[in-house]
Computed example of a mutant assay.
Amino acid sequence: MTPPRSWPLARVLAHRCGGLLAPENTLAGLAAAAEAGCGGVEFDVMLSGSGSPVLIHDETLERTTDGHGHVALTRDENLRALDAGTWFDARFAGERVPTLEEAAARCISLGLSVNLEIKPAAGQDEETARVVACRADHLWAGAAVAPLLSSFSELALEVAAQLAPHLPRGLLVDRVPPDWLQRCRRVGAAALHADARYLDRPTVIEAREAGLWVATYTVNDPARAQTLFDWGVDCVITDWPGVVRPAVTQHRSSARYPAGSGAQSC
């Protein structure tokens, strides 16, 4: 039932860099995750209008910056001038939309493992995957732990597999489709990443018996996290890493991850 390799990232990942501790997808979020004792993060990467990989979740700027319009139509110089922090709290005024280069350097310096979601704007699946996979491969070259690339876009995962085959990949789904295993096989995914609201124990067991890791999002209840770990889930992604992390501590006595197994703690 245990996959042939240990899960390579922290077992609790802060959602969108720092969860609800800081503005999402920012360097401040990475610092907050590290300060909270979280050993890893998840964040989203799409392309700017200049073709540069940047950390942002939405295709439009309004929700998380003081800008307007589409990320894919906004050039780097204009994107860098935006405030990506005040919407969350005045303490973060002046926080910028970070580049993937900045985020990678900060994660490596802070010792944070990374689940990098390739998040293409509409119609940019292939180009986004090409740029992000190649850049990630370069930025984390020689790092202790390589990033895991995940995406809802199967085309993006196929492109990433061709360009950076040694970087592990995860297929993102919300409700787990009936053909999830075939899809994972088709894109060469090492992990199934599913919405915790719809994930069930039989699916976790089947995935692990098939040699896949299982990650799940967005888990903010420690009791639910404990249940998921008991089912065999490898990783939970959370908005509240400091609250959910104790579920891992409680779970460490489990025979699935005996001492010295190599699985990272959070």
Rank of each mutant, 00 (worst) to 15 (best):
M1A: 07
T2S: 01
S6C: 13
P8V: 01
V12E: 02
V12N: 02
L13F: 06
A14D: 03
C17D: 07
C17T: 15
G18T: 05
L21F: 05
L21M: 13
P23T: 06
E24T: 04
N25Q: 05
T26R: 08
L27S: 02
L27Q: 07
L27W: 14
A28G: 11
A28M: 03
G29T: 09
G29R: 10
A34S: 14
E35I: 01
A36N: 03
G37A: 04
G39P: 04
E42T: 03
V45G: 03
L47Y: 10
S50Y: 08
S52Y: 03
V54L: 09
L55E: 05
L55G: 10
E59A: 01
T60Q: 00
L61H: 04
L61V: 02
T64C: 10
T64E: 00
T65Q: 04
G67Q: 08
H68T: 02
H68N: 02
G69K: 09
H70V: 01
H70T: 01
V71C: 03
L73V: 03
L73M: 09
R75H: 13
E77Y: 10
E77F: 10
L79Q: 08
L79F: 12
A81F: 07
L82K: 07
D83R: 10
G85I: 12
W87T: 02
W87I: 02
F88R: 11
F88C: 04
D89P: 04
A90H: 14
F92P: 04
R96A: 11
T99L: 14
L100I: 06
E101D: 12
R106I: 00
C107D: 08
C107I: 05
I108P: 05
S109F: 08
G111Y: 12
E117H: 13
K119T: 00
K119E: 05
G123V: 07
E127T: 12
E127R: 15
E127N: 07
T128A: 10
R130W: 06
R130Y: 06
V131G: 07
R135D: 07
R135I: 00
A141D: 08
G142H: 15
A144V: 14
A146E: 13
S150E: 11
S153W: 15
E154G: 13
E154M: 15
A160W: 15
Q162V: 13
P165Y: 15
H166K: 13
L172I: 13
P177V: 12
P177S: 02
P178H: 15
L181E: 05
R185Q: 15
R185L: 12
R186E: 11
A194N: 08
A196V: 05
A196Q: 14
R197M: 06
R197L: 05
L199M: 01
P202F: 09
T203D: 05
E206R: 15
R208D: 00
E209H: 11
A210P: 09
A210Q: 12
T216Q: 00
T216F: 13
T218R: 10
N220A: 06
N220V: 09
D221C: 08
A223P: 01
A223F: 09
T227M: 08
W231P: 00
V233M: 07
V233E: 01
C235G: 05
C235Q: 11
C235E: 02
T238M: 04
W240I: 02
G242L: 14
V244E: 00
V244P: 04
R245S: 11
A247Y: 12
A255F: 08
R256C: 00
R256A: 06
P258T: 02
A259V: 13
A259E: 05
G260T: 01
S261L: 04
S261E: 02
G262K: 09
C266V: 09
